[in-house]
Write a protein that binds this DNA or RNA. Structure first.
Lengths: 340, 340
DNA sequence: TAAATATGTGAGATCGATCTCACAATCAGC
DNA sequence: GCTGATTGTGAGATCGATCTCACATATTTA
């Protein structure tokens, strides 16, 4: 009952022309007499005619809808991106359908599969697995425009927008090392996820370049939620020779680490130094303020949407890959470690 | 190019039957011979047939899509609700289209208007205005299922899920008064918004019941973002006789207040006591932990989705209105005020 | 003035799935 | 063996917008 039921036919009847002519007048193509066109437009106006997008889609094969599949819409990082994508799409009369993969490859596959039958025009996707990607390859190969954000997948040929995860992580750990830390814990998410891999690589590379051996027992894996990160943090710091510093790979984990450490009575930065990847609202309120690697979150969504819209408009180019730099924001959560 | 193009016709041809019979076999209705049905099913399987939802929608007039129009998808409150709605919808093979009103009535109207031509099945809506609501009345009257969340609009007859805003706000202010505060500031959002009205009423009623006169200069209005709330807070506390306590009406504002107060060198709870409406992740990390009025956020989305799905299934009942209770969580951001 | 082109319009096909209707067969009951 | 129900199937219409084609008139051009 969504539609009042004023169709092109009604408009045509009111204007005393055929459907074909009405369509020409409304979409201004082909030959239409001036007077006729005016009559049609007036009739449409008076009746409150709105084209049925579903009918248009059946002919054209495409609904003016773009799908966005983030790992988790509750993560402020993705929420911000969703907002920016939607704003950009609206400018071009497209709508945004959001379905979260919940960081589950199977769910991601099912979503893609089911959205496909909706004749959605294109996808903006944060693939949950860097390797299990045949479904995405397949999608891109069929010609559906796809833009990957935050995470890429090697074999897929499409536009992508990511950040310098390795460099950012390296900078974070370099900074901790420069402050005298050697036992540096890592709170990361599952290794299937592209950003986790890259940030881990940054962690490794930094340690290696400083001649510090990687200690696997200092690395804790957790899902990216505050609750899971609290647990993982407690696990990591429940040992005798606990780390003197911690690097967390996203803002929800940073918040989990804050809460976990507090619950253990460990204070920052006296007992533990902390650097988090991805800035967040309250990072400057906590005491101390949290030192972070900031990403240009506000640019990712808008750029991805623009890229996708260009593809939808038919632009044929080689895939474009944008990688934004990150930025270390030094606040107060890292202390200089003095040898004891 | 979203569709590989395997249509019912292809399946019918492969199974050597007519389209009508193929449809009957696939959707199991009417009479179909056992052998025939099997042939059709096998052919569909082999070809990888997926029904074109757009074509189905053209006939039925409805796409399996539900629209969600929150005030701001970046507000964790709405993000959580969006997540829960989506999870529930997916169970019933429906998709979620999210478009933010950005707390702008005109945008809300345009969105509704444009989504209408998409033949969306129903809406879950947090109306940005408690009074400017003809567009929603109209929508509901036409028979489109609508569920209002977080905010209601008087004239609209449809299901709704909200919380006890007045009671929650009253409890917050009662608590401050019980701790000796009389000059209690209010950081609220625009009065057009339903929750702002109700929470303001709770603030008023509490003061009145304690014989405290309402001082309009203690009330600061701001948009519901961290940035705007910082400014509003600073404005409110830049006066000589500043409030001894502050009540903020949502979690982004609470965070803004925290940052604003800190930037002014005011500490909580020594200089200012604080109670916020809506709990948030870091409320227990900040020092002190923040006392809040918690809402059952995790129940709202799921319930709203269920209600909507029932309506979509054709359930005809009088509109149901659920109002969840709130809960005061006492932490450490309120101090007992001693007369000076 | 005849031929060629430009302009305006409508009838009907199309997109894909589904539904109505007509028409066969098969089977039961009398 | 005949009527009437039961079962099975296909032809064609339908949803709404758009596009192709054919067919008119007008207007140029040779």
């Amino acid at each position: 009952m969504a539609q009042k039921g004023i169709t092109l036919k009604d408009v045509a009847a009111a204007a005393n022309v055929s459907r074909a002519t009405a369509a020409r007048a409304l979409n201004s193509y082909g030959y239409v007499g001036d007077g006729t066109a005016l009559r049609v437009l007036e009739a449409a106006e008076k009746l409150g005619y709105r084209a049925n997008l579903v009918a248009q889609a059946l002919r054209s094969g495409q609904l003016p809808i773009v799908g966005f599949i983030p790992g988790d819409i509750q993560n402020p990082f993705f929420a911000r991106i969703a907002h920016d994508i939607e704003t950009e799409l609206r400018r071009h009369r497209h709508n945004l359908l959001i379905a979260s993969s919940e960081e589950n490859v199977e769910q991601e596959k099912e979503l893609l599969e089911s959205l496909r039958s909706l004749s959605i025009r294109g996808f903006i996707l944060a693939p949950t697995s860097a390797t299990d990607s045949q479904h995405i390859v397949q999608l891109a190969r069929e010609g559906t425009p796809v833009v990957l954000i935050d995470r890429v997948v090697k074999e897929v040929h499409c536009d992508s927008v990511i950040v310098d995860n390795e460099g950012g992580a390296r900078e974070a750990v370099d900074y901790l090392v420069a402050n005298g830390h050697e036992r540096i814990g890592l709170l990361r998410d599952e290794s299937r996820i592209f950003t986790a891999q890259e940030r881990f690589a940054g962690y490794q590379n930094s340690l290696e370049s400083h001649g510090i051996a990687l200690d696997a027992s200092l690395v804790s894996v957790s899902r990216s939620t505050v609750e899971h990160a609290i647990e993982a943090t407690i696990r990591l710091f429940s040992r005798g020779d606990r780390p003197t510093a911690l690097f967390t790979v996203d803002s929800l984990m940073t918040q989990g680490a804050l809460l976990g450490l507090r619950s253990m009575g460990l204070s920052i930065p006296q007992d533990v130094s902390l650097v988090g990847f991805d800035d967040f609202n309250l990072a400057t309120f906590t005491d101390p303020q949290i030192t972070v690697i900031a990403q240009p979150t506000s640019e990712i969504g808008a750029l991805a949407a623009k890229m996708l819209l260009e593809r939808l408009a038919g632009k044929k180019l080689a895939p474009r890959h944008t990688r934004f730099p990150t930025r270390l924001i030094v606040r107060g959560s890292v202390s200089r470690l003095h040898r004891r």
